[in-house]
Amino acid sequence: MAAITVTGLRRSYGDKVVLDGVDLDVDEGTIFALLGPNGAGKTTMVQILSTLIQPDAGELHVGGHDVVHEPDAVRGVIGVTGQFSAVDGLLTGEENLAMMADLCHLDRAAGRSRIELLLADFDLVDAARKPVSTYSGGMRRRLGLPPALVGGPPPLLPPSPPTGLDPRSRRTMWHIIRDLVAGGVTIFLTTQYLEEADQLADRVAVLDRGTLVAQGTPAELKRLVPGGHVRLKLRDADEFEYAIRVLDPPVHDAEALAIQVPSDGSVRSLRALLDRLDHSSVEVDELSVHLPGLDDVFLALTSGVRP
């Protein structure tokens, strides 16, 4: 079942078109990443999905509720985090969570135990009684997710990317996010950080100047762009010259005695390459396969070069 469906979404500010006919679907219990450069319309998209602002046109459903006509029902099933909704800097971390528990209409005992659990999970026990305004960047980011989780995991959660965390906290965060998804939570994240999308997302969409320029799994997207290659390191200068004559590679590096042969990384193309090397008796020291990252996808798709 689809947790989010968007059809024909348009929104302008004055005569500046920010979203120009966006269609997307996000399945329940999956992680969806919306990628795009600054100004692509990601923030506007989240603001519309989270009922903060109205679309000019389009059909939008979140958790089965119409975003325009049943905003309160939508608000009941989403949790918004991070850059899109801060915490109260004058309150302590614990007071912030207690306020959220009250606003989620939890009874006191349920709220307390939930808050203790979250503070422990997110490694915030020591910081709990300090005002948030005194928090370090990392502590602040760790507090990004818990307020949205106080009322019990919401079916739908557009979190900010857990960026700027040290590697260990980041692993923990990813782990928590995967646990949530395993429990049926749908996550809609917007990010410019491709590693995160690559690690976390089941599906990725690339937004550029108000339209979706590509949609698919990270693997599918990577196949859209050129840049995949096999790198061969040759034994010596003679072999290097010979290999260049045989394979005529577009890229070579005489210093490193290495050449790059275009490849989509599939077993079939690798076997063909190896056969060719064997056939011509080229002596190869090292072979490595390089596939394009989401970085390449992002750069190719959002720079005006459309596949």
């Binding site: 989270s50 309160d72 608000r75 801060a86």
Partner: peptide
């Protein structure tokens, strides 16, 4: 002017 208002506006309160 602060981000917290966005949180309140997106909650079913």
């Amino acid at each position: 002017t602060e981000g917290i208002i966005a949180r309140f506006r997106t909650m079913a309160i």
